[in-house]
Amino acid sequence: MSRTPKHVFVTDAEPLRSNWRAAFPGAHLIDGTAPLKECDGDLFWLMLPYEGDVGAAVLKWRQIAEKAPVIALSDEPRDEEGLLVFRAGASGYCNGYASPLVLQQVAETVAQGGVWLGQSLLQKIVMVTAQEAPRPPEIPPQWAMLLTEREQTVALAVATGASNKEIADQLDITERTVKAHLTAVFEKLPVRDRLQLTLLVTGRM
């Protein structure tokens, strides 16, 4: 029988606590001044401060959490803020007032090694990663050898930040066909989403 993950929520906002306990009845809720001995957990949820450096807040709790993932919560999620916390190492970013069902979905995704981000934020991060990426090597990398030529083309297009519609237009195929190619890519490579695919293709994973 598998052990139930220990969730640690860091917040001073009392109204949110009942919602989080509904999602994870055994969750440990602490404020930002809790002793380190109270900060042992498998998954950390950090309610971001209203003011101040959110990136620094995430970095602080990543150090405290050690190898456990940190998910940043915001009362008003914005792509700019999400980009900051992602660069600081957060494994997820979502609304602190999300329903218990959504919080459970976030936890499942992150626990399996995925990243939870809004669609528009994910697209921005993929584009930024692609722009900062080093030039691809002339010799085909190992990941490319696992894919068909068309799947390689789709994977490379994703790594430039292109949407499914843009890829379909570039290759003169339907969006449904693009999705089919991506499904095959995700099955053949050790990636779960477009961001991980971009990191792999650009040599950062």
Rank of each mutant, 00 (worst) to 15 (best):
T160L: 13
E76P: 00
Q104D: 04
L122I: 13
H7W: 10
L156G: 15
G32R: 14
V154S: 15
I173H: 06
T174M: 01
N19M: 07
Q104V: 05
S163M: 09
K124P: 00
Q112A: 14
E38P: 04
D193H: 02
K37N: 10
A68S: 07
P100R: 15
A22R: 08
A72K: 07
A13S: 15
G41Y: 03
A90E: 02
V106Q: 14
Q131I: 13
L83K: 04
Q142F: 15
F44C: 02
W45N: 04
I64R: 04
E166Q: 15
F186Q: 12
T109I: 15
Q104R: 13
A130G: 01
L121R: 04
Q152H: 11
L59R: 04
V10R: 05
T33Q: 12
D193L: 04
L101I: 09
I167N: 12
L199P: 05
T129A: 13
W45E: 07
R194S: 08
L122Q: 06
Y97R: 11
D42V: 13
P25C: 14
A56W: 02
L59C: 04
A68N: 12
L48Y: 03
P100D: 06
T198E: 03
R17V: 05
V85D: 01
P35Q: 11
K165T: 03
W45T: 10
D42I: 02
G92H: 01
D31T: 12
L122A: 10
G114M: 02
D31V: 13
A180N: 10
L199F: 04
Q112V: 05
I71D: 14
T160F: 01
E187S: 13
S91F: 07
L84P: 03
L200G: 05
L43D: 05
L171G: 11
A144I: 03
L83G: 12
V54E: 07
V128F: 06
